[in-house]
Amino acid sequence: MKLDEVPQDNSPTYSGHKKLVYAVDEQGHYHKVKSSGWDIESFATQLAVEDLNQQTLDAYADAKAGRVSPLAYHMYKARLDVTSLAQATGKFEWQIKRHLKPKVFAKLSEQKLQTYAEIIDISIDTLKTLPSQP
């Protein structure tokens, strides 16, 4: 990548930040250059972020309809999934999946709720409910 090929696409995913990249001058020597974004990278980021947001919206609708527990919504909202939540809590994935069932979730002890609330970084009361907007 030449110095004048360093993309400066003002990507929204950078939120005004700049990243440092390495690029060559005409003689093939390297310099540090700040980049305000690259459309190619930004498109990939946005695709992934949109997918996460869609999972969160789906979980919100499912929780509202009583098909899953509020934990499902809060998990996706915090950019976690069953695998990463299991790793963070030290539980098995099947345990997390059980706790995504409304009936099982309703009977969870304060201690178990506290574990989830800490990882997701919200209070127990928030964990047990759904916000009015997803």
């Binding site: 990548m1 995913t13 990243k19 440092l20 990249v21 390495y22 690029a23 690259w38 190619i40 990278e41 498109f43 990939a44 980021t45 695709l47 992934a48």
Partner: peptide, 16 residues
């Protein structure tokens, strides 16, 4: 494919 590109570019790699 987006995931590969993100691992390659987004996570602070200095490009490529």
């Amino acid at each position: 494919l987006a995931h590969i590109v993100r691992m390659q570019e987004e996570i602070g790699t200095g490009g490529a």
